[in-house]
């Protein structure tokens, strides 16, 4: 019953996860690591649709993984940095801020759209429940 709300709920969860991931990526955009180890690896959200509802409509989306980007990062010449190696290089994360900001806007819009569906579905279901009220 009321499957549209559950389906939108999976969307809310997925986009909130994406939001968390983007926030983490942006928070760590300036992490400096020594060349001996990995750079901070940005995460991506991998999502798959959930198939097969009672009327064949499909049941939403699920996060199936959080793959990471490359561990090599970007090599930067910064000899004054305390973690710089013998040649003066450090690793920085390979994160494109404009890409992250674009994703942030997409995640926000998608979350809002799903919340909107929850609201409208609630109104529709209320109308269905009110059929015959007062007869």
């Amino acid at each position: 019953m009321f499957d549209a709300i559950s389906t939108s709920g999976t969307g809310l969860t997925t986009y909130r996860t994406w939001l968390d991931v983007i926030a983490n990526n942006i928070a760590n955009v300036n992490d400096v690591s020594p060349t001996s180890g990995p750079a901070f690896q940005a995460q991506y959200v991998q999502a798959q649709p959930i198939d097969g509802g009672p009327d064949g409509a499909g049941q939403g989306v699920a996060v199936t993984g959080l793959p990471s980007s490359s561990a090599a990062g970007v090599l930067e010449y910064d000899p004054n940095n305390p973690v710089a190696d013998a040649n003066g290089y450090v690793r920085r994360p390979d994160i494109d801020m404009s890409e992250q900001m674009g994703n942030l806007i997409m995640a926000q819009r998608a979350f809002q759209a799903n919340a909107n569906v929850v609201e409208r579905s609630t109104d529709i279901y209320k109308a269905a429940i009110d059929i015959g009220k007062g007869i």
Partner: peptide, 14 residues
Amino acid sequence: GQLTDPSQYTIAAT
């Protein structure tokens, strides 16, 4: 919880 469409019930009850 097995009913897919709530309006089915309300129509039948009406």
